[in-house]
Write a protein that binds this DNA or RNA. Structure first.
Lengths: 356, 356
DNA sequence: GCTTAGCACTCGGAGAGATTGAGTGCTAAA
DNA sequence: TTTAGCACTCAATCTCTCCGAGTGCTAAGC
């Protein structure tokens, strides 16, 4: 049941015009827009067909046509021309990719903000790791006689630290013993495997400073925990107010809270996308979450390295500018993958490139 | 020009009722509300006086009265009863204060979120340090022959780290030399004092691995930089849609963007409050920022330790529930101060308390 | 001199038509 | 299959009226 070329041309014109104006399009406007040399009556006939087949909808009998989710889907799959980013745009993105302070969660957060700013839609970003994270290494640094820094590194090469202050004194040999012990007992373990028994054994071995073991290990557990339940960062939620479809305050607020409740909600949306490459587009009712049923989502995933993946996504009205958004999102995702994938540094010179 | 008791009673009733309902209050309603044994006509006379003196306003001739900013100010200064938090509320706050992963910026961010959730208003949080931050200490940890972790600690006891990977090999003695060098050359310096000359001297001393100096130092510079331009975290911006005064989408959006543009904007608001203790209330036009002229702000500051201070704040309509918000904010600020001020840990046992 | 009852007046908001016009569907002719 | 023509539909807009909460003022009462 392929559509005729003419029908496609009309459908495409409807979608693209609607994306711009958010207003129903009538037969007369389409006559000009499509450049077809037929009368408006002919177009009306075609529109009637497209409506019957479910590609278009009529808000009410005497209004123009509006694309249905099915219509958007066809547009996205077949009619949409891949958007080339302008030089200005790529430059803008490249500049923004030059992030500072590249602790993993900062980069993710920043990526979300960036995407939101680039697209003028609310955006979110998260990272997911397919395996369960484990501790790769402990280091303890003595600061002064009453405090030390614990540095924990996980198998995803995420490094976290924390300063501990103690009411009792502490010596360098003591700390070295502890470090050895910690590394011997807990490296390679997942969160689950850090059992109380294991702790007890290690504490026993630590002698007088056994209390410190649990301090450092519970810090390590927090790190592992936070990596398993990777945070979702959202940005630019206020952008939804830019679009007339969210003039209805109720709708706007529902979507807003959905977006800001960084809970499992946004995760359940994005995690399935972790394994798909390239941009993925979810239109209106294709979304599982009730709150997104009349919005659309564009997702792109990127490689963080060490098997970890990240997802950036954009939420907007169903009439969102898919071509442009998908192009930008893919470009950013590619850029991020490269950023993470090419960590080699020149051994010399004040080069600025680094990575987490 | 003190107000009579009766006028105060009336003004207070108007403010409190308006805080609840957001609707103008008429003389008849006040007759009941105040419990005064006078007729509505008398109250009308009083209202006329209060209006003339600028404490009340009339949206239009035949509507009830609404408090003016001046009226709110009087209410806040003299009439407002200090709100006692319920046990349930203090419990809720205490629970929330038990934060995980207490890297400084996380705590600040979390505090903002918490306040927003507690008050149902948009909130923000930031930290400021009166002095310019300096590097207190460097540590380099060898991970494997091609990578190491740099740990930088500043004088505010903020610790940051970053993993570096190199294309060339690296040995432990080499790294120790570097560490010594870095500590000797750059400790105690502010961002400005990390001059190219200083770098050159250090690089010269480093011999073959001179390239690494600039890597680590520019990381340190990033840390210092991010501490000087301390970030502002906002949370719960969507809460402004809860309030009828922001039904006007234009207004709502203006305020939203102001809040999410974490730029110097929110800073210029909060920084002056850094040195005031206790809650500070800014009503409508008392705000400097144009975008806040018809909103109110409640601020509270807290001590982070080492001379650093933090500010949490809440933004809402002028008719915001000052008593409740101020009480909650102060309680949270106190809690945070204590959290930072009492860092001592028991040497033993799996106690969860730690600090950055 | 303060308080109160009474009353005319004001003005925003809600609701009922009336009007408009963009756009449709259908029919009959090309 | 396309087109011109035409009656029809219906949201949006405007106008008009009505309603009532609430006021301000005046004159009488305490």
């Amino acid at each position: 049941m392929e559509l005729t070329e003419r029908k496609k041309k009309i459908l495409r014109a409807v979608v693209e015009r609607y994306i711009q104006t958010a207003e129903p399009i009538g037969s007369k406007a389409l006559q000009e827009l499509t450049g077809l040399n037929v009368s408006s009556a002919t177009i009306r006939n075609e529109l009637a067909d497209l409506t019957e087949q479910g590609y278009l909808e009529q808000p009410h009998t005497s209004a123009g046509r509006v694309p249905s989710p099915k219509g958007y889907r066809l547009y996205v799959n077949e009619l949409m021309e891949e958007q080339r980013l302008s030089l200005e745009e790529t430059r803008q993105i490249n500049d923004a990719l030059h992030l500072k302070m590249q602790e993993l969660d900062k980069v993710i957060d920043q990526a979300g903000r960036m995407v939101s700013q680039l697209t003028n839609y609310p955006a979110f970003a998260l990272a997911g790791n397919p395996r369960r994270p484990t501790i790769k290494r402990f280091d303890l640094i003595l600061v002064d006689s009453a405090s030390f820094i614990a540095v924990v590194m996980t198998d995803g090469n995420v490094v976290k630290n924390k300063l501990f202050r103690l009411p009792t004194d502490l010596s360098e040999p003591q700390l070295q013993l502890l470090t050895t012990l910690l590394n011997a007992a807990f490296v390679g373990k997942t969160l689950d495997q850090l059992t109380p028994e294991l702790m007890r054994v290690a504490e026993h071995a630590a002698g007088a400073s056994y209390g410190l073991i649990s301090l450092v290990v519970s810090f390590a557990m927090e790190v592992l925990d936070s990596m398993e339940n990777s945070a979702v960062y959202t940005a630019g939620a206020s952008h939804i107010l830019d679009h007339p479809e969210y003039q209805d305050l109720g709708k706007a607020q529902k979507l807003m809270s959905y977006l800001t409740e960084e809970q499992s909600l946004a995760k359940s949306l994005a995690l399935p996308a972790l394994n798909d490459d390239g941009a993925k587009i979810l239109i209106g009712p294709e979304n599982v979450a009730e709150e997104l049923k009349d919005s659309s989502v564009v997702l792109a995933s990127y490689d963080i390295g060490d098997g970890m993946k990240g997802v950036i996504g954009v939420v907007g009205p169903t009439r969102m500018d898919y071509a442009k958004v998908a192009a930008k999102l893919s470009y950013v995702a590619d850029g991020l993958s490269k950023l993470f994938g090419a960590p080699k540094l020149p051994p010399v010179g004040p080069d600025k490139e680094k990575e987490e």
